[in-house]
């Protein structure tokens, strides 16, 4: 069943109404780029190009597409609280930042866990986590891990091993559908994941079982660790492949929010929906083009380079350069 967002809205309990959209999705996307930029300059490295490519997608998910309740976790993330174990009864995942698990609410998986930095910035921009959360990024003993862990804000499972997220989403969606829950399941994916066979097995199963309360948006930035995907391992016409495996698949400009809204509204009865968001890994930060095709992780080679990027990107993002400790 594929209940439109507006109708699901009506079924929500008023006290658990979603957060108010105080900012526009465009503003949130800009804020995400700014936060990830600041973080990258301060830490002399970061997953910066992922903010360029996916800021609109994550902003869209959290600010308008997903029906999520109020966070159940503290605004300032608690320290690492141990791993799942019978001896750790207080263990919680980071999913509480996306709101409570209630039948009417959607669920989100960030499948490429290295996008965590961008996801955390989005949580801050949408009022789900305090800005202090980002200061804990990759700090020893913190739950705000570099590769989003199950206990990291906004995460519900471990996805650091790529290509498993869509399968988990499909399984949860199947269960929710059987239970008659109106909330849907969304998976944010990266294009590198199409190289893993499991991605195709997931689509095949979701199509076979008619799992249409499942949808995914994929950041097609054509990049992976080694560089441009075409150089590393060609993947061909992935839209046609998704269709052949039984999904409803649409391609959009991943920086065009109107196109994103329309894609989300596509009728995909009986099938999962896959939105391929074609993006630029340097969007909003043109100086990064110099590094093409090595964009997966941005680390500065010298203090001069760091300073130059600081000036240039700050100007592009309309903020003052970051005042960092040298």
């Amino acid at each position: 069943m594929n209940i439109p967002w507006t109708e699901r809205e009506k079924t929500a309990v008023p006290s658990q109404a979603p957060l108010q959209n105080e900012k526009t999705t465009e503003e949130i996307a800009l804020g995400v780029r700014r936060r990830v930029f600041e973080h990258t300059i301060r830490n002399n490295g970061g997953y910066l190009s992922q903010a360029c490519s996916s800021a609109e997608q994550l902003a869209f998910l959290y600010n308008e597409a997903l029906h999520l309740g109020q966070p159940t976790m503290p605004m300032i993330p608690p320290p690492f609280g141990g791993v799942p174990s019978a001896d750790n009864p207080d263990y919680v995942t980071g999913a509480g930042y996306n709101g409570p698990f209630e039948p009417q609410y959607d669920r989100l998986f960030i499948a490429p866990a290295h996008y965590a930095l961008v996801a955390y910035a989005t949580l801050i921009e949408t009022g789900r986590m305090a800005p202090e959360g980002l200061e804990m990024f990759n700090k020893d003993g913190s739950s705000v891990e570099m590769i989003g862990a199950e206990h990291s804000p906004g995460m519900e499972v471990h996805n650091g091993t790529l290509g498993i997220g869509l399968s988990t989403g499909a399984g949860l969606a199947w269960g929710r559908k059987r239970k008659g829950e109106p909330g849907e399941v969304c998976v944010f994916m990266s294009d590198g994941e199409v190289q893993e066979g499991q991605t195709w097995e997931a689509v095949q199963a979701a199509a076979h079982h008619g799992i249409d309360n499942l949808w995914a948006i994929m950041d097609v930035n054509r990049q992976q660790c080694d560089g441009a995907m075409d150089e590393v391992m060609q993947v061909g016409d992935i839209r046609q492949k998704f269709i052949d495996f039984g999904a409803h698949c649409v391609e959009i400009d991943g920086h065009d929010l109107e196109a994103m809204r329309q894609a989300r509204a596509e009728n995909h009865e009986g099938k999962p929906l896959i939105i391929l968001a074609y993006t630029s890994p340097t969007k909003g930060m043109p100086i990064l083009e110099r590094r093409f095709p090595r964009l997966h992780y941005v680390r500065f080679k010298s203090e001069d380079e760091r300073a130059e990027y600081n000036q240039a990107i700050a100007a592009d993002l309309g903020i003052a350069p970051v005042d960092y400790a040298h």
Partner: peptide, 16 residues
């Protein structure tokens, strides 16, 4: 099979 980052030599958490 050349396996890099054995054990806890990676900050990548459980999956790494």
């Amino acid at each position: 099979l050349m396996g890099f980052l054995p054990g806890i030599t990676t900050p990548g958490g459980m999956t790494h």
